[in-house]
Nucleic acid binder design. Structure first.
Lengths: 331, 331
DNA sequence: TAATGAAATGCACACGTTAAAATTATTGAT
DNA sequence: ATCAATAATTTTAACGTGTGCATTTCATTA
């Protein structure tokens, strides 16, 4: 492996000059810099990041932490997140991936090992980790889950607005009796999406029938169970908003089991636009939550935070978009 | 941040002794070691991996490289792979994730940055990268795609055997007219799976009708197209093996579009057992390719390779398993 | 008790880089 | 031509750790 000292010898300068030249210091004369850069390229020099890190105290790695990678249904999450991040990340940054539940020793999470940390959060159980990171002072951005704490940089989708639009669309198709299968109790996203649902109904002066609010927990099974209950109602809804696509799939299977045809007899709309929403039969209409965009924006904010540590934390919202497929019928 | 020198001062020994004690050197007396370990724990000492790396020339990171993370349909791949790997990986190893297509400068891939590399390969376009890694001497394991080169450690599923079992099962259900939708031409996996298909037919003395061999390329669309063609045959098959689940989903949609009911009129069986195979309507019968197991085994082999660099490269096969769901009818 | 050898520890340097301080070269003004 | 000011470069030290070799400590034997 060749080092700056080797280059220095060839160029007839000191290794410090090489270091400066290669790092764009203004202290170096142009001709010297050019010569050094040429020689470095010729010798296929690649900097030793460990040595760099040791002295600059930067690690050139940013860590991506998921609530869990062993559990958690949403596999598309991970891919989309990594996509978005690597899109925004400089090539000589390393991206490491971890499950928060796999971190047994918080002591391993140190400023010296991570220049910055992205948390793709799915549950408030991540808070202990998040606050550890915040406490030891590693630049931090939390993605996907809306936090109450305004002192932490946070990038999320505008769930409420997105759901409102979706329900507006369902209503515009002539539906009057709308039900909702709610998300996991206590989760911010659950209440946000429910709010969006109600916003739309209220705007359209449709009644809020308490029998049309079914509890779920974001799992496929809970979608199945909730839908089964809704179908046995004396006067079933004509359209059901499922607070995520997993539950929508469960709901669709429930319809299938009860010989209720989608969308002829009942319309369904989900939330997330997971990878296989388009491959269900019929293809699921849903609200796209742009995980890749969220991740990319979050990464940009993190980089900003690295460069200017006193940047004010903000809560940023990324717009969702309605994806019309085949599960909402015109009435 | 506290260093071994701080510990040394407190313990009243030299930093060398601390270093040795903490790294399990046999040169240190037990009482000394115990004292040092106690003090280190009390002071919440965490080693500086950059300094360690600089002097030992080990990076404590292993790189996971995918063919692409921007493209490539199979999102469950990534999750399962990371699952399997982090399962086998020591906590003080870092796992970094990259897309091979995102590596613009092979010069960045150096022994100094990666102790070892795992390639989750999906296409032979990865070969340039693989051989670069091999050439510069980074310990390497290639996962998922079977290589011809016996000098590279390789862990793959036993596709041929898995398909044979699956087709045996389909035949045992009374099917006689079986078709196959083949994978991408030129891919090792395509020919392996086709071989498994033929193995079974030959064993059961069923005829190989060339009209029942449809070309695909692993994409959903190609599955749709191939199935459409098979359905227009004067004497259509009663069961179709699709060389992966994506094509099976395309095929299922083709049946749906042609008003052919699955499995009543035609049976389908896929390969991979992707995450949403169980959520199709009806749920897809398929062959599970254990990506997590492959990754875990591959990681173990890599670790072995790190510890004993002269370990002989092998080609290891991981068993697939038949997943019976609802798309193969009894006749 | 002294000599011997083995066990335990310390010293000094190295790893490749950046940064502060010191030195030398160059320019401009008188 | 001289001096000051500034530009360009070098010298020296430091980051935290591991390792070869020298040194000390300690138990054993003569």
């Amino acid at each position: 492996m060749i080092t700056i000292k080797d280059i220095a010898r060839v160029a007839g300068v000191s290794h410090t000059t090489v270091s400066r030249a290669l790092n764009g210091s203004p202290l170096i004369k142009k001709v010297t810099r050019d010569k050094i850069e040429r020689i470095a390229a010729e010798m296929n020099y690649v900097p030793n990041y460990n040595a760099k890190s040791l002295v600059t105290k930067r690690s050139f790695t940013i860590g991506l932490f998921f609530s869990s990678i062993d559990q958690g249904t949403s596999s598309s999450f991970l891919v989309d997140a990594i996509k978005g991040i690597s899109h925004a990340l400089d090539e000589n940054f390393n991206l490491t991936v971890h499950g928060i539940d796999g971190v047994h020793n918080f002591g391993n999470i140190q400023p010296q090992r991570f220049d910055g940390i992205l948390v793709m959060s799915q549950s408030d159980e991540d808070n202990a980790f998040i606050y550890h990171v915040k406490t030891i002072g590693i630049p931090l951005v939390v993605l996907n889950r809306q936090l109450e704490d305004p002192s932490i940089m946070n990038v999320v989708a505008n769930d409420r607005e997105g759901v409102r639009e979706a329900i507006d669309y369902v209503v515009s198709q002539g539906h009057q009796k709308l039900a909702i299968i709610e998300g996991k109790p206590g989760f911010k996203s659950s209440t946000e999406r429910k709010q969006g649902f109600m916003d739309s109904l209220i705007t359209h002066r449709l009644q809020l029938d308490s029998g049309y609010f079914a509890q779920g927990d974001y799992s496929i099974e809970s979608g199945y169970a909730a839908m089964s209950r809704l179908l046995t109602l004396p006067e079933p809804p004509t359209a059901v908003f499922c607070s995520n696509d997993d539950m929508a799939i469960g709901a669709m299977n429930a319809c299938y089991a009860h010989k209720v045809s989608v969308p002829q007899q009942i319309s369904l709309i989900g939330f997330d636009d997971i990878m296989f929403a388009r491959y269900t039969n019929p293809a699921l209409s849903t609200v796209r939550k742009p995980i890749a965009d969220i991740s990319e924006l979050g990464t940009k904010m993190l980089i900003q935070l690295l460069q200017q540590p006193d940047t004010k934390p903000q809560q940023l919202f990324v717009k969702t978009s309605l994806v019309v497929r085949d599960t909402v019928a015109d009435r």
